[in-house]
Design a protein around this nucleic acid. Structure first.
Lengths: 232, 232
DNA sequence: CCGAATATATACCGGTCAGTACAGAACATC
DNA sequence: GATGTTCTGTACTGACCGGTATATATTCGG
């Protein structure tokens, strides 16, 4: 499983290449706001669209399962264009992951704004089913796929995704602590453990969706869970 | 993602090869109980031990992530020996999966014998944590890994694992229907949905274990879930 | 001791992997 | 139009993939 890592992509990318792509969410507005500096032949594709296409491939196949040939075909560009614009496969994946969190996981932030703890759980669970069983996108959760699939234990992709998920769960914990202060949750329940239980169920939903489960079946899990919910 | 499928392994295996390996659980005792018929050079390795080693590799790396080189090294044999004994990578994986279900998932059958529905759930959840967080084996669930990882939608490995899991869940459903007749569960709960919820949580536990979660954290999810449990 | 039968080890097959060298094409500036 | 800069397409690299051909050991029945 030793992969070819003959060159240091960061050097060629950050110094020699000036026009690498940044996903729309993260503008580096702090630096010198130079004019777009369009000298030379203009790019013939839209990096946003290409990245969206790459996201769909990674989502359907996983990081290792997505080959560069498949990616370039879906993105409608050739390999040199991809490498010039996005760096390498790993950098492309991280940018796709950023896009995924920003677009497809936006429901998480919204869910945390629900007025009650139960409302938070309800929105999270329904949002997960809608996202992971949607007809226009691949089934399953890109985060779960990436956590589970990656080969080597020390894989930086895996570590990155796990770290991102931990911060999401921490946000749920904080929300549930607030809910207990608000009286949404009885004092007998531990916010940390309840959040852990909820996120565990969420990840299970993602696995089942990945396996082709129908949304109605997942809805059954959700209904049962919410019927057991301790509090309002 | 087109894989090399140049030969039909079943033909060469079942007809030409007579001494292919069968996991210990599935003796074909019905057929002619011929003497071991050890003509020719004897095998220098123990197929049971080799299969157990292969299982650990698949468990840690997934089906596609495990390379034949890694497998043969862990098994202590060469590639021709592997192919002669186990067929090909896919057949080896299925045999490893059989061994996994027989040895590592034995707690599921035991759990279904618990006297109450709550007892069934408790044993299933605790058994999952013990199995997927053990120190002597890779973390996570081979079934979940295999479901999530496989590349092509039509991959027979994926389909096989999903089918196996469906039969497990069906067994839980039947057990919960019995539990409701026994009065373990209130009439308001649907056995199917409750089983779905439980197995969803179980798969979420596997994902978290895969990501390196400590058993104490998973125990928190379990405690919370069982505290919410409807019935006895 | 002789072949038949089976297992082993080496070396190899075509194919795919991620990544790149190179030449030509398209633009801005001079 | 010349020049410099950037992008695009073709063709390629070395490494690894799953799987196998071949030759050599090692055992058996005869």
């Amino acid at each position: 499983m030793l992969r070819c890592r003959l060159h240091d992509s960061r050097v060629t990318l950050d110094s020699a290449r000036a026009r690498t792509y940044l996903p729309p969410g993260m503008k580096c507005s702090a630096s010198t706001a130079a004019p777009p500096s369009v000298r030379g032949r203009p790019r013939e594709f839209d990096p946003d669209e290409a990245l969206a296409a790459a996201l769909r491939v990674f989502w359907a196949r996983g990081y290792e399962g997505a080959s560069m040939a498949e990616l370039t075909e879906a993105m409608g560009i050739t390999k040199p264009s991809l490498y010039a614009c996005f760096g390498n496969k790993e950098a492309l994946f991280k940018k796709a992951l950023d896009l995924y969190e920003r677009d497809k996981l936006a429901y998480i932030g919204k869910a945390l704004e629900a007025p009650t703890a139960r409302g938070v759980a309800e929105r999270l669970l329904n949002g997960a089913v809608a996202t992971h069983c949607g007809d226009s996108d691949p089934h399953g959760c890109l985060g779960v796929i990436s956590t589970v699939v990656c080969a080597a234990e020390a894989d930086p992709i895996r570590a990155d995704v796990i770290k991102r998920r931990a911060s999401s769960e921490a946000a749920v914990v904080k929300r549930f602590e607030q809910a207990r202060r608000d009286g949404d949750l009885p004092d007998s329940v531990c916010p940390t453990k309840l959040a852990s239980c909820l996120t565990t169920l969420l990840q299970g939903l993602a696995v089942k969706a990945q396996g082709g489960a129908q949304p109605e079946e997942l809805q059954g899990s959700i209904d049962t869970f919410l019927a057991m919910w301790p509090g309002r």
